[in-house]
Computed example of a mutant assay.
Amino acid sequence: MSDVERGLESRWRRILAATPTRGPVSWLVEFLAFGLKQAWACVFGGALLAVIFAARLWYPDDAALARNDFLTLAAVGIQIVMIATRLETFRELRVIVLFHIVGTVMEIFKTDVGSWMYEGEGLLRIAGVPLFSGFMYAAVGSYLVRVYRLFDLRFTRYPPVWATAILAAVIYANFFTHHFIWDLRWVLLAAVVVLFARTWMHFRVFRRTLRMPVLLAFLLVALFIWFAENIATFSQAWSYPDQMEGWQLVSIAKLGSWFLLMIISVVLVTWVYPPRRPDSATRPG
């Protein structure tokens, strides 16, 4: 946990320490603390999404700087602020940059085969893909590394890391190969369920440490990303083929893709924060 976050948590704890330790009020306090930590973990993604939405409403069409280039520069600025204020560490930046690279490679391929498309011009792009697109994947990485620290995540019966890495590699490959050969999506979803079926995630809120099946956690994060994706496509950051004639909700079937992406994301995060058991004494710093 960064010095900034330690200071904020210390203040929150002093304020909440005077609240009841039992009864409905205590659970309300835990719920409030959970919401505050989640919002704090989303600060990078939330800021980026706010900029995308604001640019859709107010960025002038005749501006000298293309909107996509503005979004890229804004994303770079947000990342610099995150590092300068120590909301993210350089150690965590490694995995966030890796998210950026993995996401950009996928974006280049997916736009080339017509899975989705970007509008507008700009100089800061690769093969027609604006560079801000990679920051949307980086936002997922930022959320995961921050939520790991803020909630002091621990796991019981976590599968072998090598097995999760192999599964993540196959999932990533399938995002490309299913355009040419069999789509293994349902097989991979089943493999995820089998691999993580017995895994529980333990997370510290305020006074209480709770737990939930890790598969449920994956699904909830995937659902959250789907909501964010709808805001982004409404803001015309990109469009799916069925949205070209007018915006509509992103297909709920995309939840499966985001669920599988969670496995890739979790494996990348284990590069920085290896999974720990509840009885482990070391906390991420």
Rank of each mutant, 00 (worst) to 15 (best):
L219P: 00
P284Y: 02
L57N: 01
F180T: 11
L153H: 05
T199P: 06
E245T: 11
M82N: 00
M106C: 13
Y148L: 01
V147I: 13
A50P: 04
M201F: 01
G128T: 12
V205E: 11
V76R: 02
P241D: 07
V29D: 02
F99Y: 12
F227Y: 09
R91K: 14
L131H: 04
A33V: 13
A217K: 04
I83W: 01
V140I: 13
W27H: 12
L8R: 10
L65P: 09
Y137K: 07
W27L: 14
V140T: 11
G246N: 08
W12I: 11
D152K: 09
W58E: 01
K110H: 15
W116G: 08
I96G: 02
P275S: 05
P160Y: 01
R207E: 11
A222S: 13
P159C: 11
P160S: 09
W27M: 11
S142H: 08
D3K: 14
R56Y: 15
Y273C: 02
I96A: 08
M201Y: 00
I263G: 02
Q248L: 05
G103F: 03
L216R: 11
A18V: 14
L223D: 01
F259R: 00
L260I: 05
V129E: 09
R125I: 03
P213H: 12
F155K: 06
A138E: 01
T19C: 06
F34Q: 00
F132Q: 02
L189A: 14
D183M: 10
A222H: 04
T270A: 01
R67M: 13
I101P: 03
D112R: 11
A39I: 12
I231K: 03
R283S: 14
T209M: 05
M1H: 05
E30N: 10
M244K: 13
A75Q: 08
V221C: 09
I263P: 02
P284T: 05
I263V: 15
K110M: 15
L123Q: 08
G77T: 12
S26H: 05
V102P: 04
L215D: 08
G122C: 10
L223G: 14
P213A: 09
E30D: 12
E119Q: 15
G134Y: 06
T72N: 03
G120F: 07
G23P: 03
A232C: 06
H178G: 02
T209L: 03
A222M: 05
L144W: 03
V25T: 13
A47S: 15
A163H: 12
R67A: 13
P160R: 14
R22I: 10
W258A: 04
F151H: 09
Y172G: 02
P284V: 07
G23Q: 03
Y172N: 03
G114A: 07
F175M: 11
L144F: 11
L220S: 08
T19Y: 04
Y148C: 04
G134S: 06
I171H: 03
Y118T: 13
P20H: 05
